[in-house]
């Protein structure tokens, strides 16, 4: 029985190598994945081994330490979840109908899209705020740890074949305008309106290692926290709590919840099904 327990708890070679890889990446490149949820990370690193032609994680570590370009490839494989514009249209409909009347009362508005990846969510919120006449007085901070993703986000160019989904989502979000008002399509690509970007600041920020940089009225961070362990989730939620004004709003992914978090008490449920929370006035 004791031998059985010991065997169960002994980490596999892969687990040992993965731990060492994360330490190496942190020491060399200052990216901290040590607080990432292990099951998804293992899956992504397994995919990376195949894509990057490595037989073992140790081999990957050896190459990553000596080749910054290879590290960027690994970073892309480990960090980029594909998103869509207006993903979960009901979320944006709830922001439109329930939060906008409150957001309208602020003379100037700051929004933080944390973990913005290639920018779909940031542009969605910019379009929504423009439709509601609020974009001119708003500033959207769109942050991510992957500089290559941020560059793509800043370019605001998406493959045309993704637009059908974007357009359907946008329509279902209760939009008063057409998505085609905001982009020009040419050569298989859609270029989003430069003027949307005037109110978006794309910048490098890590929820694992950086601190709060501004006071905001709305944080939207969807399907980012699912990749974190509970301690790192708590760190990130602590940042959101600190950044939000009293009464400010926090939007999470459809299956993310504050129920198991250390910061649950600092927020009330504003819109249960769409996972919109409001920071308590006293928090």
């Amino acid at each position: 029985m004791d031998a059985e327990v010991a065997r169960r708890e002994r980490p596999s070679e892969f687990d040992i190598e993965l731990q060492l890889l994360l330490d190496a990446i942190f020491l060399k490149y200052h990216y901290d994945f040590r607080g990432y949820a292990r099951a998804s990370l293992k899956r992504r690193v397994t995919v990376a081994l195949t894509r990057l032609g490595c037989a073992t994680v140790s081999q990957l570590q050896d190459r990553v330490l000596r080749d910054a370009a290879l590290f960027q490839s690994l970073l892309d494989l480990v960090t980029v979840p594909v998103s869509e514009m207006f993903r979960d249209p009901a979320y944006f409909r709830a922001i439109r109908t329930d939060l906008v009347p409150v957001l309208r009362t602020y003379p100037s508005l700051k929004v933080w899209v944390a973990g913005c990846s290639t920018g779909e969510e940031a542009y969605s919120l910019a379009i929504l705020l423009r439709e509601e006449g609020l974009l001119d007085r708003a500033l959207i901070y769109a942050t991510d740890i992957n500089l290559a993703s941020l560059a793509r986000a800043e370019a605001g160019v998406y493959e045309v074949d993704r637009l059908t989904t974007f357009t359907d989502n946008h329509r279902q979000s209760g939009a008063p305008t057409s998505l085609s008002d905001y982009y020009t399509a040419a050569y298989g690509r859609a270029v989003f309106d430069r003027s949307l970007r005037a109110n978006i600041v794309f910048s490098d920020h890590s929820l694992a290692t950086d601190s709060v940089f501004a006071e905001v009225q709305l944080v939207s961070c969807r399907n980012v926290l699912i990749y974190f362990t509970s301690p790192l989730q708590n760190r990130a939620l602590g940042l959101f709590r600190e950044a939000l004004v009293p009464g400010g709003f926090l939007g999470l992914g459809a299956k993310e919840t504050l129920r198991f978090s250390a910061h649950g008490d600092a927020f009330s449920e504003r819109h249960r099904t769409e996972r919109l929370y409001q920071k308590r006035m006293t928090a």
Binding site: R43, A254, F260
Partner: peptide
């Protein structure tokens, strides 16, 4: 996401998310 696993419970993966079992054991989504 991050739900501690209860015994005597059947968990269904939500639509449009992967469901994983993570160390703990706990549920994780992706």
């Amino acid at each position: 996401d991050k739900e501690p696993i209860d015994a005597r419970t059947i968990y269904f993966a939500p639509p449009d998310y992967h469901m994983l079992v993570d160390r703990g054991p706990a549920l994780a989504l992706s």
